[in-house]
Nucleic acid binder design. Sequence first.
DNA 1: GATCCTTTGAAGTTG
DNA 2: CAACTTCAAAGGATC
Length: 434
Amino acid sequence: MKWPLLDVPSSATVKDTRSPSPAHLSNKVPVVQHPHHMHPLTPLITYSNDHFSPGSPPAHLSPEIDPKTGIPRPPHPSELSPYYPLSPGAVGQIPHPLGWLVPQQGQPMYSLPPGGFRHPYPALAMNASMSSRFSPHMVAPAHPGLPTSGIPHPAIVSPIVKQEPAPPSLSPAVSAKSPVAVKKEEEKKPHVKKPLNAFMLYMKEMRAKVVAECTLKESAAINQILGRKWHNLSREEQAKYYELARKERQLHSQLYPTWSARDNYGKKKKRKREKQLSQTQSQQQVQEAEGVLASKSKKPCVQYMPPEKPCDSPASSHGSMLDSPATPSAALASPAAPAATHSEQAQPLSLTTKPETRAQLALHSAAFLSAKAVASTSGHVGSQPPLLSRPLPLGSVPTALLTSPPSFQAALHTHQALPVLQAQPLSLVTKSAH
DNA sequence: GATCCTTTGAAGTTG
DNA sequence: CAACTTCAAAGGATC
């Protein structure tokens, strides 16, 4: 069966400079502690390119493919079992969806809480409904032998998580208690982290490779590179991560039905908060943003460029920032597209709204701005066109153009409609997508 | 030692 | 509902 959304030459799958399992190629100690010899994503979804080529989509994905449209449909929560071994029988056979985090000796995807191995899924234990939905193995902590049972969900982090002066209200039950009790509650309550999004998963996987290829280690720089690489990914490659992220979210919601991203709000101190706010205020004025950028004497992206190795020069980070939203492409490519949340399909390009981005935009190219205007008028707005007829993998093109020809060629492989964009800094095209 | 930087995406909040 | 904000990872840089 062909990969539903991707009528792409199989070559496109391998065109990317990335290796199927970069970690393997890394001759350095991975910054990201991957499981031994294991591709981080492999256990969860056999998404190594080998299995993910359009010609041979993961067998387990088949059931999710809508026979009518050929488009993968979003699995209903009740259909998660294929990925998430919730049944007792499956537990021991199928790796935990996040199993790739498990063997990690260092910090897993999410930090392990002290004692976490004894209470892998605190949330489950606290939630009766979950108990009924998950296998005893997952609920009961005492199964050290089983791959999944003794594994804390990576999202669970030490309760020692830095707490703000305690926003005295989390849940009604908690708020009713005394401040002390509340504090205890919070301390007791493990910090459940947000599930990683597609890009985060990608970064997690690729960081080590990039670090190995480049001489830099600074995450900010690495992330710029990764951001560019992300855009250079083909649709199907990105789809892997979108799908993976979607499943992560689903698993996460299953494990922590009551969890909300809000729970973690304010738990990170933002020293820069004020600065950001001020920028936000000014972001409506590019000029002002420019001023901010200048005054901030921000480190030039160039600084993040590998001293010697070319890598994917993050220098044009402004480029990657311009285009950003792989979201549309996500919707396009991701097998989960149909199931994609509205945000996945029509995610506002938050990035492009970032003050700094704007500033850079303004600073770097008036042409870009004009191009943007042009692009925006020719953008694809409104209802989503048929997946296959969609103009592009919005996210990838711009970067590709801005960077290496091979990348662009790769993009071309996946999109017949690119030529027009060739001459433009398309990033912008994306912006109009919503 | 805490926070920033930097990226994209998801989800929250705000107006 | 659009726009904005926060957090997720990561590790060197900065405060």
